[in-house]
């Protein structure tokens, strides 16, 4: 009997969600150096999973292992409840992918490119028109792909990935090298897919701002290790801010607040206090007014998601 549990069945262990994709101890060593180390990805059905990390952190290597394009040195990949090492073809039949840069045959038209993939998948003919429609390439379908812009090639790659009606779509840096309009277009497309097609998406990027707008879950990888993985709301909660007070005499006001036992901080732009409790803020403002400080502004200051990300990945500034 098959001991694997199908999706939708409980896994036996209490409270554990049956993940659509799961890796355990996934490790890849290249030349003795671990470029991916003990990665434990958990992707649920219907997620748009943002796989984030600086360039060279191991994103593409991980993704290649998820598709069976690279063999893990150690660890396991389970997709749709099946072991990838043993059920590669079965799994790949339900996975669409776009890895690193779009693959295409420049001497063929867009439609012919999709026909090549369609034949390999043995998918019905009408899928081509459908996929072209989704990525809005109908008008250029009969042109040679070597004349396509990068954005069009990218869309063609997504169309090819959608051709087999996949349950899981793996997109590695899908907006790399696109202009802002192209990025916007791909982003809208990706966001619309889970509802329209019931597909789960794994999306890698080195730009948090990009993933933030699409993802429901995020995993952050740096130097080959997964340092964070949770729902995007959890990540956003980490950015809970402080309250900035603009007052007439910040130095005196700061000292007064410290004397009163408030955890105030002084910086070159004024002072800040923790933004947790509304009543605390009210008391602090009342205290300052009582001391005859003019309070110009009380505003919330959130540390950006970007700075949380930078802190986690330890990459100063450039990613």
């Amino acid at each position: 009997m098959d001991m694997n549990h199908g999706i939708g069945q409980p896994l036996g262990q209490e409270g554990r969600q049956p993940w659509l994709l799961e890796t355990s101890g996934l490790t890849k060593k290249l030349g003795g150096k671990a470029v991916v180390r003990d990665v434990e990805l958990r992707i649920g059905e219907g997620d748009i999973y943002g796989f984030l990390g600086p360039n060279g952190a191991g994103k593409t290597t991980t993704i290649r292992m998820l598709l069976g394009l690279a063999k893990p040195t150690r660890g396991r990949v389970t997709v749709f409840g099946k072991d990838l090492a043993k059920n590669r073809l079965d799994i790949l039949r339900q996975v669409g992918s776009l890895v690193e840069y779009p693959s295409y045959y420049g001497h063929l038209t867009g439609r012919e490119n999709l026909e090549v993939v369609r034949r390999l998948l043995d998918a019905p003919q009408e899928r081509i028109a459908e996929a072209l429609g989704i990525v809005r390439l109908e008008k250029d379908a009969n042109r040679l792909v070597k004349g396509y812009s990068l954005g069009m090639k990218q869309r063609l790659g997504i169309a090819a990935a959608l051709l087999g009606h996949p349950r899981l779509l793996v997109l590695d840096e899908p907006t790399n090298g696109l202009d802002p309009a192209g990025i916007q277009e791909i982003r809208e497309l990706i966001k619309s897919l889970p509802q329209q097609r019931g597909v789960t998406i794994l999306l890698s990027s080195h730009l948090l701002s990009e993933v933030e707008q699409m993802a429901t879950r995020v995993g952050i990888i740096t130097s080959g290790s997964l340092v964070y993985q949770d729902r995007i709301e959890q990540l956003k909660r980490r950015t809970a801010g402080r309250i900035r007070l603009a007052v007439s005499e910040p130095e005196a006001a700061w000292k007064r607040l410290l004397e009163q036992g408030w955890e105030a901080r002084r910086d070159e732009r004024g002072l800040t206090v923790p933004g947790g409790d509304d009543r605390d803020i009210a008391a602090i403002v009342a205290e300052l007014v009582r001391e005859r400080h003019a309070v110009y502004r009380v505003e919330e200051e959130r540390s950006s998601l970007e700075s949380v990300f930078l802190e986690m990945t330890g990459t100063g500034g450039s990613l």
Partner: peptide, 18 residues
């Protein structure tokens, strides 16, 4: 060359073929 030119091998091998 069809495959070397623009990622064809990778696409082929990520499809359900041996």
């Amino acid at each position: 060359r069809f495959e070397h030119a623009s990622g064809g091998w990778k696409q082929l091998l990520a499809l359900p073929v041996r």
